[in-house]
Simulated assay, not measured.
Amino acid sequence: MLRAGIVGLPNVGKSTLFNALVANAKAQAANFPFCTIEPNVGVVAVPDERLAVLAELSHSEQIVPTRIEFVDIAGLVKGASQGEGLGNQFLAHIRQVDAIVQVVRCFEDDDIIHVSGSVDPVRDIEIVNLELALADLAQIERRMERTRKQARTSKEAQFELTVLEKLSAALNAGTSVRQVPLSEEETVVIRPLDLLTAKPLIYAANVAEDELATGNVLVEQVRAIADQEKAKVVVISAQVEAELVELPPEERTDYLAALGVKEGGLQSLIRATYDLLGLRTYLTTGPKETRAWTIRAGMLAPQAAGVIHSDFEKGFIRAETIAYADLVKAGSMQAAREQGLVRSEGKEYVVQEGDVLLFRFNI
Rank of each mutant, 00 (worst) to 15 (best):
T285F: 03
A213N: 01
L134I: 12
F159G: 06
I125H: 08
N19F: 00
A23H: 15
F316T: 02
G85F: 07
A224W: 00
N216R: 04
H309P: 05
E229W: 07
R280H: 10
E250D: 15
N216L: 02
Q28S: 15
S268I: 05
T162K: 15
L357F: 01
K78I: 00
A92P: 05
G346C: 02
G306S: 01
A335F: 09
L358N: 15
A258R: 12
E185Q: 14
A25C: 08
G117M: 06
R123C: 05
L300N: 13
E131D: 07
N362L: 11
L358V: 15
N40P: 11
L247C: 06
F316C: 05
I190Y: 04
E289C: 06
L193G: 01
L9C: 04
K26T: 12
A258Q: 12
A205D: 05
V188T: 14
V104T: 06
Q352D: 05
A157T: 03
E263Y: 12
V97K: 04
T16Y: 05
A205Q: 07
Q239E: 15
A226L: 06
A80I: 07
N362M: 08
A138Y: 03
V7K: 00
E69C: 10
E243S: 11
A20I: 01
Q334W: 06
E246I: 02
L54I: 04
Q303A: 11
S15Q: 03
L196E: 01
V177M: 12
E131R: 09
S118R: 14
E348Y: 04
F90S: 06
Q334C: 04
A238R: 04
E145Y: 05
K232F: 13
L201I: 11
L132C: 05
S332W: 00
P121C: 05
A99R: 01
L182Y: 08
P65V: 00
L132Q: 09
I6D: 02
V233D: 01
I73Y: 11
F159D: 14
L277N: 00
F18Y: 08
Q267M: 14
I236R: 09
T66N: 14
E246F: 08
I68L: 13
A45F: 13
Q102C: 12
T16L: 04
L91E: 11
G8A: 00
G331F: 08
G87N: 05
V219E: 03
R291T: 01
S154Q: 09
T284D: 02
E250Y: 10
A135P: 09
P39K: 08
A208F: 09
L218W: 12
S183D: 09
A80T: 02
A169C: 03
Q334Y: 12
G346M: 01
V128D: 10
L256G: 11
K155I: 14
A257E: 13
V261G: 06
E209H: 07
K199C: 00
A226I: 02
L130Y: 11
F107I: 08
K347C: 03
I100K: 05
M1C: 01
E38K: 13
G174Q: 11
V177N: 12
R142Q: 13
L256F: 10
L244Q: 10
K78C: 02
V44R: 14
S344P: 01
G260D: 04
Q228W: 06
L279C: 00
P39Q: 06
G75N: 09
A258S: 15
E185I: 13
R280T: 09
Q339F: 10
L137C: 07
I308M: 07
L54E: 05
A173K: 12
P287V: 13
G85A: 07
I94M: 12
